[in-house]
């Protein structure tokens, strides 16, 4: 049985900054919402071919396709990993903001 096709987007990390990027169809964006979704195997193959070009490999790090799903009329990454990546942040408050929220004294929740 052939594997069911799942829609995908093309993603990578920026070479200089390391930030996650999504392919919009015309260039890279740092926002997942801008991603061009490939909804057919043919479109996915086109994106994969793009990812494989030496230029793409040289200009970004690790270009690859990841699956997305539709929910309430909008696309979101299928995996938790990609969802966290798309949110561009850990799932909790971090750094100085988290510390000031806790306040002095180590006990406050």
């Amino acid at each position: 049985m052939a594997k069911r096709f799942n829609p995908v987007v093309l993603t990578a990390n920026a070479l200089e900054s390391g930030a996650p990027l999504w392919w919009t169809g015309a260039g890279w964006s740092e926002s997942f919402a801008d991603a061009r979704v490939a909804t057919t195997p043919e479109q996915a193959a086109t994106l994969q071919a793009l990812a494989d070009t030496p230029l793409m490999q040289a200009a970004t790090v690790g270009p690859c396709l990841v699956e997305v799903v539709e929910e309430d009329g909008a696309w979101r990454p299928a995996s938790r990993r990609e969802a966290i990546r798309a949110s561009r942040s850990p799932t909790f408050a971090y750094g100085p903001e988290a510390a000031s929220r806790r306040g002095p004294g180590a006990r406050a929740a």
């Binding site: 988290a98 510390a99 180590a106 006990r107």
Partner: peptide, 16 residues
Amino acid sequence: SLKPIGGAPGDATAEQ
């Protein structure tokens, strides 16, 4: 201890 209640273990801010 870098383990305040509810903190991320091992994290320290520049101020700390």
